[in-house]
Amino acid sequence: MTVDKRVTEEEVAAELADGMTVGVGGWGSRRKPMSIVRAIARSSLKDLTIVSYGGPDVGLLCAAGKVRRVVYAFVSLDTIPLDPHFRAARQTGAVEDEPWDEGLFLLGLQAAAWRVPFLPTRVGLGSDLPRLNPRLSTVASPFDGEELIAAPALELDAAICHLDRADQRGNACFLGADLYFDDLFLRAAGRRFISTEKVVPTDQLVAEAGTELRLRINRSMVDAVVERRGGAHFTECPPDYRRDESFQAAYASAASSPEAWADFRAEWVDVDEADYQRRVAAR
């Protein structure tokens, strides 16, 4: 009998623990595993370290009080350049800040995926990154003595990513313009969770993807699969759907006051995911 890795968002959240380091795939407000993010926001989890090419995943979890530390190079909603929930958390000192350059970040994930302690780079030299991110260090080249930055491995306790199609064992593909760094997040993590728009039989994956070149996630990189149409909402997930700009604007304006956030949370976070999707469809 074929292994079936399908679970619910609540089961993913239940596999996480307080204080864990959780990597989130996607980029900005693009193909984020938002249904799992919402389940984490609803849970009793706390003190998480979030590692992300940040979008509303970071802002929502900060607003929900789940985050101790943010490891990031940017937090952007794309059409809204800055996430106001993240800004508020930073400006009140509610979260610790670990700044990275977005390319350095790739090296950190790659080092963790390759199980080496660091990768060398010029990125960071001369800037304030080494001063503000004490995890960075320097390393002298054994060949010519050049003093470079050592990007430390960004080891993750868990990773969550949203892929367009998957089979029930965790083979998955992306259908949009860019895989981003989802494969590296999954390879850098101890526990690996994906959500997907649609679970299809394995023998239909290539047809769904259009080409085997898009089958970039294989089942050895995935422990569990959540099937959730609209799982990336309100971020974009092309070709299935674009970003829900009016919803995103409502999310952003919910940062204007504690009351506005309480209303948003009651209506769009503290609800069952199936119910959320029904309400979105009815908007």
Partner: peptide, 17 residues
């Protein structure tokens, strides 16, 4: 605890060197 949180470092350190 900045007065105003902006973009972050983005790719600026890597771009400039």
């Amino acid at each position: 605890r900045p007065k105003a949180q902006l973009l972050g470092f983005r790719g600026a350190p890597g771009n400039t060197v």
